[in-house]
């Protein structure tokens, strides 16, 4: 697939990744469902993974792909803990609206 790398500029991967990252940011800012906010965070993690892989392919450096592997591992652990916390919040408040969780605001 050397042809792909010469055909598509690296800038386009940056634009694609940043478009997905921005969509994740907008999701975190506008949605109030805790699970959808969590999914937006997954979107952001995936866009960063894609960008790291693109840089690694263009630079011929395998270290970045190992880092993507570690990011995936940490994301899996994070999802397990995060969803456990969401279940716990639902048990206590009967809702997953993040506006209910404003006790740390003051």
């Amino acid at each position: 697939m050397n042809s792909l790398i010469t055909q598509i500029p690296l800038n386009h991967y940056i634009f694609l990744s940043f478009a997905i990252f921005t969509i994740g940011i907008i999701g975190v800012l506008t949605r109030r469902n805790a699970i959808v906010v969590f999914m937006s965070i997954e979107l952001m993690l995936n866009s960063v993974n894609l960008l790291l892989t693109a840089f690694s392919a263009y630079k011929s450096d395998p270290n970045a792909q190992v880092f993507v592997f570690f990011i995936m591992a940490v994301a899996a652990a994070e999802v397990a803990i995060g969803l456990a916390i969401i279940v716990l919040i639902y048990r206590n408040t009967r809702s997953i609206d993040i506006n209910v969780l404003n006790k740390l605001k003051w």
Binding site: M1, I5, N11, A57, Y58, S60, Q65
Partner: peptide
């Protein structure tokens, strides 16, 4: 948009 990114001219496509 205006940045010229520098990368290897003949990347090794076996690293992945």
């Amino acid at each position: 948009n205006d940045t010229q990114l520098i990368y290897a001219q003949n990347p090794n496509n076996q690293i992945g």
